[in-house]
């Protein structure tokens, strides 16, 4: 059976100025999620005067600065169209030149017409551009089939790859967008209950805000499912130390050292152990905090 025709007609359009398809395409997907933004306002965030263009990574970064979750899709047309069908306009990179002499262009896929085998896009100065499937796919493939959507946490993509999703959220967290990242991790837990990566993220966000108790709860939740997780054990020990529960911190860092072994977190855990040992035992700020262990 032929798939149904889809077109996201409500997606806005911003005609691009010279060289500025990056800001225009990004404004399109951001505005579709309700961000009040114009391409001109995005120019200082993504445009590179010296390259007369915008880099993919910077579109990703700018989306984060607007508290959206940039989500890079798997490089297949199935993955692309699945998100369009879920209602997400897809920002794509196209190459209208050759691999050796590329002509890069950002556009936004808003629909697909199976009867005519056409993609429907917001592109350049065209509010509604139709490209034959073969043509679009060729230009897209020559740009390594790069595609991105902007999710508004707690929105989840149609795609169900937990690794891809949680890594995307960790990027939002790393960019310092604690609130949307927290919502996104919680959304992740609703789809993948008990996922350790989501719990680690929630713990680390609580930590970054100085909410030691909350951080501890998240790390403990993770460790209940994955007792040998050195990262969570390390962070739990440090959260305990911040609360003045030095004995417990020493106990936990001992376990973290054992879990870390000679793996990649060995040095980080050793640093934590040294910090815990070197800290003066001033006693807990709130003795009850160390009791519910």
């Amino acid at each position: 059976m032929e798939p149904a025709r889809i077109e996201l007609t409500a997606v806005p359009f911003f005609p691009q100025d010279r060289y500025q398809c990056g800001p225009a395409a990004l404004a399109t997907v951001l505005a579709a999620t309700g961000v009040a933004v114009t391409p001109d306002e995005l120019v200082p965030q993504v445009y590179l005067p010296g390259r007369r263009g915008s880099l993919q990574a910077e579109l990703v970064g700018s989306a984060r600065r607007h508290d959206r979750l940039p989500y890079i899709l798997a490089s297949t047309t199935d993955a692309l169209l699945r998100e369009v069908r879920a209602g997400y306009p897809v920002l794509v990179l196209q190459n209208f030149g050759f691999r050796s002499a590329p002509i890069w262009h950002f556009a936004v896929v808003v629909g697909f017409d199976p009867a005519h085998r056409q993609y429907i896009l917001r592109s350049g100065t065209k509010a509604r551009e139709t490209l034959a499937a073969g043509r679009f796919e060729a230009t897209w493939r020559r740009a390594d089939s790069w595609a991105m959507i902007a999710l508004t946490p707690p929105q989840l993509p149609a795609d169900t790859d937990s690794q891809r999703y949680l890594e995307a959220v960790s990027g939002l967290e790393a960019a310092g967008r604690a609130q949307p990242a927290e919502m996104a991790y919680r959304a992740g837990l609703s789809r993948w209950p008990d996922d350790p990566r989501a719990w680690l993220g929630l713990g680390n966000i609580a930590w970054s805000q100085g909410h030691w108790r909350e951080a501890r709860t998240a790390y403990r939740e993770l460790l209940r499912h994955e007792p040998d997780n050195a990262a969570a054990r390390n962070n739990l020990a440090l959260a305990l130390l911040r609360e003045g529960c030095r004995e417990l911190a020493e106990e936990e860092i001992g376990r973290a050292l054992a879990s870390a072994g000679s793996g990649r977190f060995a040095l980080a855990v050793a640093d934590s152990a040294a910090e815990i040992r070197a800290s003066p035992d001033v006693g807990p700020k709130d003795p009850a905090a160390c009791e519910d262990h």
Binding site: S170, N204, A231, R264, F265, A268
Partner: peptide, 20 residues
């Protein structure tokens, strides 16, 4: 000391190179 969430992605756990 805290091990960031992002640093736990994209590595092979057997990788010798330390997180630090």
């Amino acid at each position: 000391g805290i091990i960031s969430t992002a640093s736990t992605f994209g590595f092979d756990t057997q990788e010798a190179r330390s997180a630090n």
